[in-house]
């Protein structure tokens, strides 16, 4: 609170006279109380407004993503793989590696985009590897790099979480990307 001590009433005409004289003795408790009340009230009121404004600007709800249907378990036999495109357009390769669906990694979903420079990998059944034709990058069935630039850089294929519901294979896909918004607008 800035000073002005003393009674500054309408009667005071001279601005200079109303200046604080700095005398501590003249500052009573009440004077502080009024100042503190004012400061408190102003801070509380406008502070709350600011907090509402911040909450307004903070993203309200980000689309957390969702579990999306890929195929039924029967559609994908052990050793087989299939392409899957998420609604946002990300390309995935879903592969079944074991007969027993309960087994760990019985199914895996790997991004088919090479982490090196974004080319599309494909599964080579005879070599049992994902191969990227751009710079001869290669990944094993789990998406770990085994050759080429990704191996040098230690870049694996991105894995998407999978889960089995009954006899359905579901994949977790992240929320709406900007690409989907754009494609929807174009449609």
């Amino acid at each position: 609170m800035q000073e002005p001590s003393g009674d500054i009433r309408g009667e005071r005409t001279d601005a200079v006279e109303s200046r604080p004289d700095g005398s501590e003795s003249r500052r009573g408790f009440l004077e502080h109380a009024a100042g503190v009340t004012m400061a408190g009230g102003l801070t509380a009121g406008y502070g709350m407004l600011v907090s509402h404004a911040v909450r307004f600007l903070y993203p309200s709800e980000t689309d957390p993503g969702s579990w999306q249907f890929v195929c039924t378990l029967d559609d994908l036999q052990p050793g087989d793989s299939m392409p899957f495109t998420t609604p946002a357009g990300a390309k995935l390769v879903v592969a079944r590696q074991a007969e027993d669906p309960a087994q760990d990694d019985a199914f895996i979903a790997l991004s088919s985009v090479c982490p090196h420079l974004g080319c599309k990998v494909h599964w080579e059944a005879n070599n049992e590897r994902f191969f990227c034709p751009c710079h001869n990058g290669a990944f094993d069935a789990q998406g770990n790099p085994i050759a080429g630039p990704p191996k040098a850089a230690g870049q694996s294929l991105t894995r998407f979480p999978l889960r089995i519901e009954g006899n359905l294979l579901m994949v977790w896909v992240p929320g709406t990307g900007i690409s989907e918004v754009i494609s929807e607008t174009n449609a």
């Binding site: 009674d7 009024a34 004012m38 009230g41 509380a44 009121g45 709350m48």
Partner: peptide, 25 residues
């Protein structure tokens, strides 16, 4: 009206504003 009174009024109005914002919340 004295400055002190005005300060008090401002403070109280600030608190009322706070209350209205709590209602908004």
């Amino acid at each position: 009206m004295s400055v002190k009174t005005k300060q008090l009024i401002v403070g109280l109005l600030g608190l009322m504003f706070l209350l209205s914002l709590i209602f908004v919340q």
